[in-house]
Design a protein around this nucleic acid. Structure first.
Lengths: 124, 124
DNA sequence: CGGGATCCAATACGATACTG
DNA sequence: CAGTATCGTATTGGATCCCG
């Protein structure tokens, strides 16, 4: 393992990096990006496919993703209105590292939950 | 790219996965893990090497990491007291995927910041 | 030295109601 | 359909003081 490169997270320019990581790793961002990885979706379709998200948070998170250039928003002048969301090239490029982290989480869920349970019983 | 596997983030067991991801991706966790990747450190050393962190958040985050089995805490019965923190094997295994995400962030910082700037001027 | 306890501000988030 | 506006709550995190 290349330990010298952990400075990527720690380094001095890390303030900008961390600001971006914080935004990626919030409650809904990864979930929305992963959902859009399947293809273009409309607002209501996204709302249905992401259980538990409120309209407000879906809108806010999509606006942030659009603002950061990870998601493209297309408005069609129709009645009823139609708005489609799709990942940009940059947005798609986030999928592999996101999956790496998700893979790690899945792989270590048993160990982590066991460690948590042991910790609880110790403090009880 | 293996699009079918984005269900790892979206899937039904995703509640547990997301809970863990949320904890990993908070403001300080990755930074502390990356710092400990260099080797064992004492509380004060950690505090110094992570600029901007408050004593409170350092303590809280370390407790969570210990609870989840990512960090080992060793207390030495000396005067003055000495406490050392080190990554466990599980903790070390988090480094590669964390670096993957950090690498993505570094690579796309220019594009994201440019997109943000353009977005601001549009709404101005 | 290594924290715990407490107080306070900022923010994230959900629920609800309303609109072009 | 695809939001916006407003309100209230919950969570997060910093500052400060204290203690073994």
């Amino acid at each position: 393992m290349d330990y010298e490169h952990t400075c990527m997270i720690r380094g001095d320019g890390g303030q900008r990096i961390r600001a971006i990581l914080d935004q990626i790793c919030n409650k809904w961002t990864l979930l929305i990006v992963a959902t859009l990885d399947r293809g273009t979706l409309r607002f209501t379709e996204l709302h249905q496919q992401i259980p538990g998200i409120s309209q407000r948070m879906l809108t806010l998170t999509l606006r942030n993703l659009e603002r950061d250039g990870l998601v493209a928003r297309s408005v069609f002048a129709e009645v009823p209105p139609r708005v489609e969301y799709a990942l940009t090239v940059t947005g798609k490029s986030l999928i592999p590292p996101a999956l790496a982290l998700a893979g790690w989480a899945i792989e270590h869920v048993p160990h982590i939950e066991a460690s948590r349970a042991a910790y609880e019983t110790r403090s009880a």
